[in-house]
Design a protein around this nucleic acid. Sequence first.
DNA 1: TAAGATCGTTATATCATATAACCATCTACA
DNA 2: TGTAGATGGTTATATGATATAACGATCTTA
Lengths: 167, 167
Amino acid sequence: MTRGTPDTAPAVRDADLRRLVGYNIQRASSAVMGAVNRVLKPYGLRRASYSVLSVVVETPGLRQADVSDVLAIERPNLVQIIDGLEKAGWITRRRVDGDRRAYELHPTLAGRAHYTEARGALEAFDAKLTASLGDAAVAALIDGLNAVEGAGPEAEEKEAQRGTATS
Amino acid sequence: MTRGTPDTAPAVRDADLRRLVGYNIQRASSAVMGAVNRVLKPYGLRRASYSVLSVVVETPGLRQADVSDVLAIERPNLVQIIDGLEKAGWITRRRVDGDRRAYELHPTLAGRAHYTEARGALEAFDAKLTASLGDAAVAALIDGLNAVEGAGPEAEEKEAQRGTATS
DNA sequence: TAAGATCGTTATATCATATAACCATCTACA
DNA sequence: TGTAGATGGTTATATGATATAACGATCTTA
């Protein structure tokens, strides 16, 4: 195998890191994201554009700033994503009357159909990720992730400055 | 507020996406990773360099290729990371006798000490992420993540080819 | 001893994400 | 009413994470 490793036990592990929830999230994330993109590629979508399409189909009439809030995508990054979806004919920018700055985003018929297709493929793939888990475990996983996501920003506050004291 | 939103209910949600485990992982990941980097910044570390330092402290004598395997970091990307850790005086590259191509990585005394410090801060932060969860839920979360991480690569090879042995 | 694999490396490409600055427009309020 | 400040969309740009190709040196193996 690798070398003169005793071949009885791996001996090389990341045990310290595996104790960190954040590390496990990152490993799982990077293990899955590439695969997700490959699932979406045949549909001309990537993770970000898929999520935008999803939200626009779910809630037609959103403005770009709304999408930015819901998906936690910075507005500047949204522009190109929406450009792409618009050029593909899946969503349209529609002027908002009463506010000449903003655009409402609406899915086209083709957009709805395309989303349904891509969604089928993606959900099928996603189901495989948890195929070994059982419904309760999947629910616990998602709950845990949501808790972490919510705690993330708040957990930062006091880490700012500190001398050498471990405290 | 956002606009003419009824302000009684959000109405704008990503419900479809939230059903996908992969999406929840991505959201949690991106909510946490920036914060982790900010926790590590005072120690002159980033996620990747912290993980390398961790593994080298845990298992001195690893070669770079071993670290690459354990952490799923491509070898080319490891080079700069290890350069940085070496220049900071936390690890050393030591020639392997018996193989003049390879280097063994060893932590310095300063490296061990520095890791201990950074680890304290990071584990304290990490604990906050799951502060609302309870031990069983945290264990379930990590188990779920590991299951997904393991399933990720395998869940792909259905469309492409079938029954092709990896080795 | 030659062919192929492995180790570390350089250079490079891609993607994801963040920030600053800008114009047009809207809103609030003095 | 008029102006200061906030907001929506946009451009340009920076940074970071990750992946690939290709190379020289060395090891391994047939």
